[in-house]
Simulated scan of single mutants.
Amino acid sequence: MTTRVLFVCTANSARSIMAEAILRQLGGADFVAESAGTEPAQPDERALAALEKLGFTTSGLRSSRLAEFDGQQFDYIISLCDRTRHECQSRFASQNFLAWDFADPVAGNTLELFDRTALQLKERIEMFLRVLSHASDRGHLFDRPQSFFKIMADPLRLQMISLLAQHGELCVCDLVEATGMSQPKVSRHLAQLRDYGLLIDRKTARWVHYRINPALPDWMRHVINTVNDYNLNYQTAR
């Protein structure tokens, strides 16, 4: 089944155009990627150059008005700035809406910012694709709120999620020390949280470091932050 994704931004000239091109190439035939703007301009030549530096095709890219996609159904609507998140979240309330906030390289007006934004979008989209690839018969975390709350109901998982919300990134040894649980038990639960798409990891030498997946929908991040703010028992320092 083909997954349809629409990236939205204000001008549809840089961030959303780059995201469209990146997902088209990385997702292949399994994905249909589109992009649109609430106030579309023209594709920024610096954005196109940044894509080409990373090996992405730019042919056929154009700035589109969001109204062109009225009535169409997408599996995911992804906003790339706060402005479009506020403008579009209610508009697409019946569809899966994700908010990714990327600084506007046009405002910075340097080639380095366009290169950096393209690279960051590539990394985020690769992460998004990895999360989707872990979808199973249990239902994908993004699509089924009950799966998310079932995960949060486990005391150890909830404590580790809260610790990661506080500190940003922790290694397995940090979480073992903070929770008082055995390393195998902590690692097993962390692997499950990663497979659900709630966490991402990176390896350095013999340690694995975890952090909350930045691609989570706003409402999930809000639940995590609320739990963290009002449950002092989970606020254990390193």
Score class of each variant (00 low, 15 high):
Glu34His: 12
Trp219Cys: 04
Gln89Val: 05
Leu54Ser: 08
Gln89Ala: 10
Asn109Arg: 06
Leu51Phe: 03
Ala191Ile: 14
Ser90His: 08
Thr110Lys: 07
Asn96Glu: 11
Ala205Glu: 15
Leu121Met: 13
Ala67Met: 06
Val176Phe: 08
Arg4Trp: 02
Leu61Ser: 00
Arg211Pro: 05
Thr117Ser: 11
Ala215Thr: 11
Tyr230Cys: 01
Ala50Arg: 00
Asp101Trp: 10
Gln89Phe: 07
Phe69Ala: 00
Cys171Met: 09
Ala103Asn: 08
Ile22Gly: 00
Phe92Ser: 05
Gln72Gly: 03
Ala165Ser: 09
His209Val: 06
Arg46Lys: 08
Asp75Gln: 08
Leu175Glu: 00
Phe114Ala: 05
Asp137Lys: 10
Ser133Tyr: 13
Gly168Pro: 13
Asp70Ile: 01
Asp70Tyr: 04
Thr2Trp: 02
Ile77Ser: 00
Pro40Gln: 06
Val106Phe: 12
Leu119Pro: 00
Pro40Lys: 04
Ala67Asp: 14
Thr179Phe: 01
Ala47His: 02
Leu26Gly: 04
Ala237Arg: 04
Asn228Leu: 11
Tyr76Glu: 03
Arg83Gln: 15
Lys53Ser: 09
Gln159Thr: 12
Gln183Glu: 11
Val186Leu: 13
Leu54Met: 11
Thr58Trp: 01
Ala50Phe: 05
Val131His: 13
Leu6Glu: 11
Leu156Val: 03
Leu129Asn: 00
Ala14Gln: 13
Ala14Lys: 11
Phe149Asp: 07
Arg116Tyr: 05
Met181Ala: 13
Arg83Ala: 14
Met160Leu: 12
Ala165Phe: 07
Gln235Arg: 14
Lys53Phe: 02
Leu98Val: 12
Trp100Ser: 04
Arg138Cys: 07
Gly71Pro: 00
Asp154Trp: 03
Arg62Tyr: 08
Leu26Gln: 13
Gly180Ile: 11
Glu20Trp: 00
Glu112Gly: 06
